[in-house]
């Protein structure tokens, strides 16, 4: 509990950035389910990230982190990246570790919180403990009170509208097969339930790009290939959670689809064509596209039903719950 309290304060503290202009919360806004509403995250020095900020809700269950990594298997590993990454700079704390520790030590509130959270540590205030506390707070961001949850866990028969119920059946149908990738309690890939790996950690090329007809994604972000160096991994990304999806626009790893309706159109077409510019190409013809993306036909009523269901996955209380927000005495 102490670690969570400390992590919450650190999460909102601009001292965790090189120029005091941002914190974790800059790119992870609570009212947007801890995303930032931008196609690409912007670091504190103005550098643009290749990817869109991911939601932090229920990431405690993830078996791997970020959009495309097999290596990042703990939140602690992941949190070090925005803190110290230099290409691009996110919070820009590389080389500032000593200054940060001294700053936090000099703050009597932090000194007390670190001591209470890490009583066994020789150095209560340390970068290691900063990361551990942040991870503890992020793990505490659990939300499971959407309309869908009320149906699923509380048997509330009135939780979902008729339209959302039809959309739910479509979502899980063989015709659409959305749940082949968006699985389990978080509607995502790779997650743990009660300590067991419930869903496989898989990465998918969804036919967003086919730059120049070469079966490639833009070099700025080739997905899992940037980690594995394997050409087959080009354009492969993890299936993100669909919880709270209605408030996390824009969509896809690079925010290149602005609405949920557009996302459904993309999957219905079995991929996307980019007509102009340096990324032009027919994504649906990308030979590395997942075999699961075969396209489907939807009537306008069915599409609305599916959207109703996706809207039912929002836990509105989590978007304003105080225990996830900036501490009162730190405002």
């Amino acid at each position: 509990m102490e670690k969570v309290q400390l992590g919450r304060r650190l999460f909102y503290d601009n001292r965790l950035s090189v120029n005091g202009l941002g914190s974790c919360s800059t790119c992870h806004l609570q009212h947007l389910a801890f995303t930032d509403g931008r196609p690409h995250a912007i670091g504190v020095t103005g550098e643009s990230h290749a990817r869109s900020s991911m939601s932090l809700i229920n990431v405690a269950y993830n078996s791997n982190f970020t959009w495309a990594s097999r290596r990042l298997q703990t939140l602690e590993q992941q949190i070090a990246i925005p803190l110290f990454n230099e290409q691009p700079v996110e919070l820009g704390m590389a080389g500032r570790e000593t200054v940060l520790v001294a700053d936090l030590q000099a703050d009597s509130t932090y000194a007390r919180l670190f001591q209470s959270a890490f009583p066994q540590s020789d150095d209560h205030v340390s970068i290691d403990n900063v990361i551990k506390a942040l991870a503890s707070f992020v793990r505490s961001i659990i939300a499971a009170d959407s309309a869908f949850d009320r149906l699923l866990y509380l048997d509330d028969q009135s939780a979902l509208s008729e339209s959302a119920l039809r959309g739910m059946r479509l979502f899980f149908s063989e015709k659409l097969n959305c749940s082949a990738c968006h699985q389990g309690q978080n509607f995502a890939g790779g997650q743990y339930v009660q300590g067991k790996l419930q869903e496989p950690t898989e990465f998918h090329n969804t036919g967003l790009y086919n730059v120049g007809g070469h079966n490639r994604y833009p070099e700025a972000d080739p997905g899992l290939r940037s980690e594995s160096r394997q050409s087959d991994d080009d354009g492969r990304f993890r299936a993100p959670s669909l919880r709270n999806i209605a408030v996390t626009a824009p969509y896809m790893h690079d925010g290149s689809i602005s609405t949920l309706s557009g996302v459904i159109d993309h999957y219905a077409a079995g991929g996307r064509s980019v007509d102009n510019g340096q990324n032009a190409g027919i994504g649906s013809a990308n030979s590395r596209k997942s075999e699961l993306l075969t396209g489907f036909e939807l009537s306008s009523v069915e599409k609305n039903d599916l959207l109703s269901f996706l809207n039912s996955l929002t836990d509105h209380s989590a978007l304003e719950e105080q225990r996830f927000s900036k501490p009162e005495d730190d405002r």
């Binding site: 699923l152 749940s179 389990g184 339930v193 419930q198």
Partner: peptide
């Protein structure tokens, strides 16, 4: 209905 919902989860 409950069987179907349960199978959705896993």
């Amino acid at each position: 209905e409950r069987s179907r919902l349960a199978s959705y989860l896993h």
